[in-house]
Simulated scan of single mutants.
Amino acid sequence: MLPLDDDLPGKKPCIQCGTLIALDGKFCNQCGARQSAQNANAPVNSWGLLQQAGLFFGIDIIVCVLGQFVEALKTFSFFLFSDIVMAISAVLFFSLNWKENKSLLKWHNFSWQKLAAYCAIAMAAQVLVHYSVDWLNLVVYSKDEDYVQHLNGSFAGGLLVVFFTAIAPAIFEELGYRGYLLQTLLKIADKEQAVYITSFLFAIIHMSFLSLFWLIPFALFLGFVRIKENTLWYGVFFHFCFNLTACIFELL
């Protein structure tokens, strides 16, 4: 006889094999059975969602690979083009399910204290990353250093560096990865699985193997903040402050 859910805080039995899984688990970790009982009134086209998510990631990875490995495309013009393509892609895919995703743009239970705490953590984390891996020449975007370094030296150039390195990524990467992609994966995977997958894909697009050791924890933190707060805005400001701190190191 299977134990009752009330006797299993945070757990429930698989509807097929009885193995205990997370309450929000959509698949059994043991037998792989879909826990369709909890979604009987809301069928999900899992394969269609995966194809859509794959298309989103495919666009990002193609422009990143081209900019990283095609010598003729290692220019500021292509860097600008790739950023525009990825920004448009994030907005378009986020808008595909606007009725559901628009709630992520609301700032639920806004708190100045919480925002300040997230920003302080972001800046402290970037200081730690900068000084601990300076010998590996790691900053938030290694490619940005190549393409926008010549903008340094003037006030206008500094503003462009901040825009391309801090403002644009904080908005469009959060919109695409913690917005569209994470929200999509939550429909076909557990919360933890969705956050881990999203974080790994986010780290990959940065095209820096040596950066994975901090990019993945960075993305995991953003993913769980997005789940916990049910809004993109804390993550956007965390991302911005983290990248802005990197800009300050580069511009000083």
Rank of each mutant, 00 (worst) to 15 (best):
M1N: 12
M1H: 12
L2Y: 14
D6E: 13
L8H: 01
G10A: 07
K12N: 08
P13A: 10
L20Q: 14
G32S: 06
S36K: 08
N39M: 10
A40Q: 12
N41M: 08
A42N: 13
W47D: 04
L49E: 06
Q51H: 10
Q52R: 11
Q52V: 00
A53N: 03
G54W: 00
F56I: 05
F57R: 00
G58R: 03
I59V: 15
D60Q: 15
I61K: 08
I61H: 06
V65F: 11
F69N: 04
V70Y: 06
K74M: 14
T75C: 07
F78E: 03
L80C: 10
D83W: 10
A87E: 11
A87R: 10
S89Q: 11
S89E: 13
S89P: 01
L92Q: 07
L92E: 01
S95E: 01
S95T: 11
W98M: 10
E100P: 03
N101K: 09
S103N: 11
L105W: 09
H108A: 02
N109D: 11
K114Y: 08
L115M: 14
L115E: 05
A117S: 09
C119Q: 10
A125E: 02
V127G: 07
L128V: 15
H130K: 10
V133A: 13
W135Q: 14
V140T: 13
D146K: 12
V148Q: 00
Q149H: 15
Q149K: 14
H150V: 12
N152E: 04
F155A: 10
G157W: 02
G157C: 04
L159P: 09
L160W: 14
V162K: 01
A170W: 00
I171M: 11
E173L: 04
G176R: 01
Y177T: 03
G179W: 09
Y180A: 07
L185F: 11
Y196A: 11
Y196T: 07
T198K: 07
I205Q: 13
S208C: 02
F213Y: 06
W214H: 15
G223Q: 10
G223S: 11
N230W: 06
T231F: 05
T231K: 00
W233A: 00
W233M: 01
G235Y: 01
F238L: 05
F240P: 02
C241F: 14
N243K: 09
L251D: 05
